[in-house]
Amino acid sequence: MKLSILLYLDPGTGSYIIQAIIAGVIGIAFFFKNLRIKILSFFGMLKYDDDKEKNDQSKTENKL
């Protein structure tokens, strides 16, 4: 199904179009990211996201 949207000379036009393009680029990036996660978890080398969040937070704290 395709959806038609009326897009006049609206500042949002370019912003709408680019979302479709970026979504495509990100789709490829996500594919490789998922592949990486699968390979890492296969070899038991995957870190948990929670740890990553904590590391990120302590990075900010150290910088302060």
Partner: peptide
């Protein structure tokens, strides 16, 4: 890329209707 797209499509008067589907 976002800024380029805004500039590009602001000038494009003929493209009144675009087909976008996400």
């Amino acid at each position: 890329l976002h800024a380029n797209s805004i500039t590009k499509h602001n000038k494009n008067i003929k493209s009144d209707i675009q087909v976008i589907y996400i």
